[in-house]
Nucleic acid binder design. Structure first.
Lengths: 345, 345
DNA sequence: TAAAGGGATGTTATCGATAACAGCGAAGCT
DNA sequence: AGCTTCGCTGTTATCGATAACATCCCTTTA
């Protein structure tokens, strides 16, 4: 266990500085009125002993915490890193530390994470939207004693606040993009739609928008494979085999779109002349390859910032702001035909 | 603050079940000997009240914790997700929950994270190697009361245990790969080498191995840009401008290599006929595009598993195992010329 | 000069759990 | 019967901090 003897406590520091534990506590928190001389002595004693406060005791006693829990589906999903960076850049200056948990889209794992995080009585909890929440998780959240915020999804308002795009709008944007260009034979390629409910809503919105135009969306998905480039490539191969006459494809995300593009190139399908391709996210990936992917840009950092700002407001007792809807922008690349007039929302 | 009234405590459950708090505590932890009937009553009471244990109090009292702290440089770095999944798959079955912190390669941020994590008295702490550790961080770690493990780097043994590849070996593998193919005009493309000391060691090993063969490595790096595809593309452009006669390039990671490849294609440099390219990591990215990148495969999940196993052993008081060195494998793709004889270590 | 005010520090109770041990009745043993 | 043993449950002290209030002493002020 490598327990290096006894850990130093407030008491140890107090003895060394020749004051009471209360005085030490006040000095280290910058609370109360303590003379400059005592301050110095205490700080020096703490420094010499290498004192590290015990948050378990501190938070238990004060019923306050500087920890913010963030639970995301997947840390490898590039999407999330920028949301997190928006969160951190807003919370860190306020002295709040974010602790991250990864659920891998598994409701049971998410529930355990929520339980573990909440049992530390955090100052707030941020959860990704679009994951099927277990009944246990809902119960845990209902009895929480901290603000809860939903990320990446403004549509469902189960929690105190939510910041994210409307995934329905995203689906409609893609549908319009294709329809404006006269596409009729349209396909969707995705994965894990049973787990990622946000992606599923985008898909359904695309499907129903097309249906309204009399078009039957061709769907190629796979629940077992990851939402990554390899899968996009694999499913595109499958799509071309079954529906060689396809004119346009929307992918669940940019990574899958890139995988798909690589197969389209190899298979000799010119993009966008023969097939149009649209991704989702506007990640830097989209600009890293030969083709600039047409995609939907989501203001990821801003989502994190808005969520964090709302949290700060709630912690400060300033009430619960309304949900924030992120602006989406369809970014024209060279994987769909550029029209003369401006694109986007 | 949305404090939903008083949070239920052990006492509340005890009163409702008509027993003492101690009995409730024992039932919920599965400790002690409690009759089946009491067990049932307590569990039902806890369930009805939606009781959520307060870990602050529990861990404070028992001086035990089920939390494991993991601090990584960047969650967007695909590399880490598989290491983490190896960690989780080993720790979760044991009832340990991992909490992640992201340092973004910033020593000050890392120090604050270490402080925040340790102040919760975790069961263990896992840190990524290859980041310049501040003196404060070192001091914090020296006085920790839990096992500490270094990930992603087996070379430096500052902590109790370390699991990772030898980055020197990686550099040498690449050097040999180029030398075996008769390359003389060799370049390295990387970013943020001032922050990522592991990458820097790979680079230095490559450089010195080549120097031993009388070759002067051409280096193109940039400290301000991210270690991603866009940067690989940008720096490759710069490299070709300054050194059009180059024969081989090693990139810091696969993402940068893919960005570089896209520019090489556009600029009309056939790969591998005119220029050979080698990446690092063996991520799934490497197989998602037209070209199968020659790269060095690192057993990421296994690194996580070994680290977690070592942690479990140390928590169990079974002593400190020796550092574990991950096997590296140079995977021949089609971005370098295949030789007749087998490749690799 | 006595009362009031305020700066600096200490005392006590408490946060919500667990460790350690103490009780207490029923069963087993001689 | 009397004693031990064991199963079950409760009591007390404690973990390491903080909140709230109490002191103490030195200035002001009338």
């Amino acid at each position: 266990m490598s327990l290096r003897g006894k850990v130093t406590t407030l008491r140890d520091v107090a003895i060394r500085a020749g004051v009471s534990t209360m005085t030490v506590s006040k000095v280290l928190r910058g609370a109360g009125t303590i003379s400059e001389e005592t301050r110095r002595r205490v700080k020096q004693a703490a420094e010499e002993l290498g004192y590290l406060p015990n948050n378990l005791a501190g938070s238990l006693s004060s019923r306050k915490s500087r920890m913010v829990a963030v639970i995301i589906p997947s840390i490898s999903d590039i999407v999330f890193s920028e949301v997190l960076s928006g969160i951190n850049s807003t919370l860190r200056p306020q002295g709040l530390q974010t602790f991250i948990g990864e659920s891998l889209f598994d409701p049971a794992t998410e529930t355990e994470l929520i339980r573990a995080m909440l049992s530390f009585r955090p100052a707030g909890i941020l959860l990704n939207g679009g994951i099927a929440r277990s009944a246990d998780a809902a119960k845990l959240l209902a009895r929480r004693n901290c603000p809860a915020i939903q990320l990446w999804d403004c549509d469902r308002r189960a929690l105190d606040f939510s910041a994210g795009p409307s995934h329905e709008e995203a689906g409609r944007l893609v549908a319009n993009h294709f329809l404006e260009r006269g596409m009729r034979r349209i396909a969707y390629v995705g994965a894990e739609l049973d787990k990622d409910l946000c992606a599923r809503r985008r898909y359904l919105a695309l499907k129903s928008s097309l249906a309204a135009a009399g078009i039957d969306l061709i769907t190629v998905t796979c629940e077992e494979r990851p939402r990554q480039a390899v899968t996009g490539r694999y499913l595109t191969e499958q799509l071309l085999r079954d529906h060689p006459g396809i004119e346009a494809v929307h992918f669940l995300n940019d990574a899958m779109a890139l995988g798909g593009l690589s197969h389209l190139h190899e298979a000799g399908f010119p993009v966008p002349e023969r097939i149009s391709v649209v991704g989702f996210n506007g990640t830097s990936l989209a600009n890293a390859v030969r083709t600039r992917l047409t995609t939907i840009d989501v203001p990821r950092a801003e989502i994190g910032e808005k969520a964090a700002q709302a949290l700060l407001r709630m912690i400060g007792g300033e009430g619960v702001p309304d949900a924030w809807q992120a602006r989406l922008k369809l970014v024209q690349g060279n994987t769909t035909i550029a029209l003369g007039r401006p694109q986007g929302a």
